[in-house]
Amino acid sequence: MLEIKNLHASVENNEILRGIDLTINAGEVHAIMGPNGSGKSTLAHVLAGREGYQITQGEAIYEGKDLLAMLPEERAREGVFLAFQYPVEIAGVSNMYFLRAALNAIRKHRGLDELDAMDFLKMVREKMKLLDMDETLMNRPVNEGFSGGEKKRNEIFQMAVLEPKLAILDETDSGLDIDALRTVSEGINRLRGPERAIVLVTHYQRLLNYVVPDFVHVLSEGRIVKSGGKELALELEEKGYAWLEESAEPMKSGVNP
């Protein structure tokens, strides 16, 4: 589904990603872990098309297309979804209105009929149950006055409605208490499926107790320094990141699964 080759990206001439190689297939869940500043969020933003990053080398092929050449909205319509680490508040635009516009933009792109308000509402009610969302949130402006947990839950709820092919969840676990973490994780697990790939960007292992990944990659200083199965996350939890950073250089080759 997604093939990233030797991806280098900079912000104002500071190189943040220094050669990422990663292949993600449909049906897989990948966790990208790493210490602060290792480039995890940058990778998520670059894949979603956020402005402000210069791609200096490499490529990302998504479903046979050059992902990096597409506008952010084109990527979204093609099924790339980013759950934001810090979802923004949008005054004056209701959650319902926003989400229906988004869904219809995507449906239109896929040649499907647009959903009218009634059909949309019916569909949304189903998905809200998945995430134990309060219905009143739908009529409030997007993320405005939401608690940290509500914002994160709203991101996963949007994912459930928009049904992306490739979902990148950027630190979705941060700021969640244990109950919210469980609800959000259950929501993510229900969205796992043979047609969908999920990338979990996370600092901590705890999310991975609930959403068990197929692959774990450790990012350090803009490179993937180690890849493995779910047990790698536990190893990291135990030993921290330091042991990997020290051995970053020798691990450089042959880490890609």
Binding site: P72, F84, I90, G92, A105, I106, H109
Partner: peptide, 28 residues
């Protein structure tokens, strides 16, 4: 803000849609 516009775009809506939705919401 640019971050607001990016949020709309990441959900499949163009910059123009983003601005008109925000502005119309503002004027409601």
């Amino acid at each position: 803000g640019e971050d607001q516009i990016f949020y709309f775009r990441q959900r499949g809506l163009s910059s123009e849609d983003a601005i008109s939705m925000i502005v119309n919401g503002f004027c409601k």
